[in-house]
């Protein structure tokens, strides 16, 4: 493999039901900033699906300079084999230096299968990506390579953090946690170069059949999109008592989320869970109410702009990450806060 042949930052532009997933736009934002530090500054989105060409302009507005479209009926709904074949074929043909994939239920299946097919490394669930030297420090007798992708990820339930490189194989592949990278402000009217490519699809024993698709359109809020999260833990005491959090969230136009303990107790659905095994969130304001602050929870919310913790246990670890900590009884403080905020907002109008 001649590494120099591999150029440019590519992202897998995930779509579901012909709608781009948020992660596709987040990856474009990151790809753009990575490309600034590389010789090849063009960012390419790889769009796979059936009848998806209409999504090209949106990708351009969010930073794609070029979109490679593989449009084929075999790619209508996600199936591992045809998607792997399509993405691996794009890699072989267009030779990206870097390929970013969302760490979603699709990307975490597609990424490893593709990386195995093209024989390269893949770093899972990255939370930070940079361009730099590998090894980080120059060492005698070891060639230091420049402009490498340095991929940082938490492991061990969020207790450790590792930075990983892939110096001898291309593309350098990473899956990236949704909700971590920032989209750019869309550039209205931006256009991308569109390349249509089809490697041809021949069904084999690896092709699976989708018997049924069941959408679980539970009325569950998207906690990763929320600007304000009012999050509750075991300390809330009961599923009924989440009402006081919901009232606070309503006044602030926020959303209720929760810790793993709450999901494990069956009080709230898994979709609302913040943490290493739940979702990573970075809202402008995060209320941690009755949440002790286990490391696995903190891993999912510590990037929030402002963290306010309310807990009766003054030694709760959540106070170590909170910007503002209040030692007190949530059953008294939360309703009083809701009442006051209502009054404040009423006075404004």
């Amino acid at each position: 493999m001649s590494l120099e042949e591999y150029k440019g930052v590519f992202i897998f532009a995930q779509q579901v039901d012909n709608e781009l997933s948020g992660i596709a736009l987040e990856l474009l934002g990151k790809a753009k900033s990575l490309a600034e530090d590389l010789d090849e500054k063009k960012v390419t989105a790889v769009l796979l699906g059936s009848g998806v060409k209409g999504l090209v302009d949106k990708l351009a507005e969010y930073g794609a300079d070029r979109v490679i479209v593989v449009d084929d009926p075999e790619l209508k709904d996600y199936r591992t084999e045809p998607y792997t074949h399509a993405l691996a074929s794009v890699i072989k043909e267009y030779k990206p230096e870097i390929l970013l994939v969302g760490a979603t239920a699709i990307g975490r299946d597609l990424g490893p299968r593709v990386s195995s097919r093209v024989h390269t490394g893949l770093t899972a669930d990255c939370t930070s990506l940079d361009i730099g030297d590998f090894p980080l420090e120059a060492r005698e007798g070891v060639e230091q390579k420049h402009k490498q992708l340095l991929m940082t990820r938490p492991a061990f339930g969020g207790n450790t953090i590792a930075t990983i490189a892939c110096p001898d194989f291309r593309p350098q592949m990473a899956t990236v946690r949704p909700g971590v990278m920032q989209k750019i402000d869309p550039i209205k009217g931006a256009k991308a170069e569109v390349v249509e490519f089809n490697p041809g699809f021949t069904a084999n024993d690896c092709y699976t059949e989708i018997v049924k698709i069941v959408k679980e359109t539970s009325a569950v809020a998207d906690i990763q999109a929320a600007k304000i999260l009012v999050s509750g833990g075991r300390g809330v005491g009961s599923p009924e008592n989440f009402k006081i959090l919901e009232e606070l969230a309503e006044v602030l136009h926020g959303t209720v989320s929760c810790s793993r303990a709450v999901v494990d107790s069956g009080w709230k659905p898994k979709d609302l869970q913040v943490g290493q095994t739940g979702k990573t969130v970075r809202p402008a304001l995060y209320f941690a109410i009755g949440i002790s602050g286990a490391i696995q929870h903190v891993a999912g919310m510590e990037e929030s702009d402002i963290i306010i913790a309310i807990n009766k246990d003054e030694n709760a670890p959540i106070f170590d990450v909170a910007d503002y900590g209040i030692v007190g009884d949530l059953n008294k403080v939360v309703p009083a806060l809701t009442k006051r905020l209502k009054e404040e907002l009423a006075a404004k109008e």
């Binding site: 490391i295 170590d320 909170a322 503002y324 900590g325 209040i326 030692v327």
Partner: peptide, 20 residues
């Protein structure tokens, strides 16, 4: 193919204010 550049146990964010 992947190699570890750096590994560390997580550094905690600086503590904010706490009131009772």
């Amino acid at each position: 193919p992947t190699q570890i550049a750096k590994a560390s146990d997580k550094v905690k964010k600086g503590q904010g204010e706490k009131v009772a």
